[in-house]
Computed example of a mutant assay.
Amino acid sequence: MGDTGDPSFEPVAHWPRQEMDGECQLLISSPDHRIRIGWFGDHFDVWKISAAPDAVSAARWTASFSADMPAEMVRDFIAALATAWGEDSDAFLTDSSYYWPDAVRPLLDAGWQRPPVARGSMEILSPDHLAGAVIDVASTDPDAETVTLWAGPGRWPLRAEANFTARTPKHLIAAMAASFVAPTPIARYQTSLSPRVAQVAHLTPVQPPRPPAPTPLDVQQAAAYRRPPALGTRGVPRWSTTSRPASPSPPPARPGPRR
């Protein structure tokens, strides 16, 4: 997808890939096959990522991203994952922190609000309440989705979501959270935005650059292109000569009768 207009796979464009005919239409794997990134174009969760201790073991953790999640933000997560990966490294598997706030530290540093804990979950909301994070602080299932980052008006399935299971390293989740508060805008055609999203988004029109002023050489070449070519001597019609053709001689007089 990185070579077909989808920027999410740019960080792993050099990894082995396989196009498939099933629900997973594209599978990208790390060279040691410990990381697998699947693209499911017809599903609610378009991107599904898993990481395992080796090529044949069950996944240690999984992450999924919905279709409404901007591909540029998925790219930020995949870039952090590719950076942590190494054939002799387990940085993409090992969680170096035991504190759940570390997974959403960029959101807390940006001033997002943290309401009281309710029903075993912690929620963090953006100042406009159009994005947030939900952290399950009570579940003990290692495969449970314990961290959800979301954005957009309304609830599922009208918003973008990123879901991470319990053993996902917090520094990788933090990379995705940092993408939520990154100041760099994302370019989109306004007609492709959902009306509900367009109403609450901060839209800044982008004007295409004006073409450069023509140089004197450009003007000269354009004039030469418009000038009709000169005709050669073979192309001059015979009747275009300046002298008039000679008049034909009158026919000879017939002799009269003899006397």
Rank of each mutant, 00 (worst) to 15 (best):
L231C: 07
A58N: 13
S29Y: 06
V181R: 01
R210Y: 01
V200K: 08
A13T: 13
I49D: 02
S243C: 00
D109H: 08
G235E: 15
W47N: 09
D42P: 05
G41P: 07
E10W: 08
G41N: 09
L217I: 03
D3S: 14
H202C: 03
K48E: 14
A213W: 03
Y98I: 03
M20E: 15
A177C: 07
A55Y: 09
W112Y: 15
T233L: 12
G2Q: 09
E19C: 03
G154Q: 07
G5L: 09
P101V: 07
P214G: 03
M1W: 10
K170I: 08
T94H: 05
S194F: 13
A51S: 14
R227A: 13
F180M: 15
A178N: 13
S243T: 11
R114K: 15
Y98A: 12
D218E: 10
P116A: 15
Y189F: 15
A79K: 03
S240N: 11
D32S: 15
S30P: 04
A222P: 00
R188Y: 11
A201D: 10
A80T: 02
V104N: 05
A201V: 09
S249F: 01
R259P: 06
R17I: 07
D136V: 05
A80C: 07
A222D: 10
T184Y: 01
G5D: 10
A84L: 03
W156L: 10
T146F: 05
V137N: 02
P127K: 00
R34Y: 11
Q190E: 15
G111N: 06
R17V: 15
L27P: 07
P127N: 11
S8N: 06
P212C: 03
F92A: 04
P53C: 04
A133H: 10
L125M: 13
S121R: 13
V219T: 06
F77M: 01
D88G: 02
L217N: 06
Q199F: 12
T140K: 03
T62Y: 05
P252C: 00
W100R: 02
P53A: 09
P115W: 09
A174S: 14
A67F: 15
E87V: 10
C24F: 06
P257G: 05
D45L: 13
T242L: 06
R155S: 08
T140W: 03
L27N: 06
P237T: 09
S97Y: 08
R167Y: 05
P229G: 13
M73G: 01
V56S: 11
W156V: 06
H171C: 06
E87Q: 11
A253G: 06
F65R: 12
M122I: 10
G152F: 02
Q221D: 05
A162L: 12
M73K: 14
T215C: 00
A58I: 01
S8A: 15
L93N: 02
V104H: 00
E161M: 02
T168N: 00
R238M: 05
M69S: 03
I124Q: 01
D95E: 13
A67D: 13
S192Q: 14
D88P: 00
P106Y: 13
P195A: 11
S179K: 08
T233C: 09
A187N: 11
L107N: 08
G2N: 14
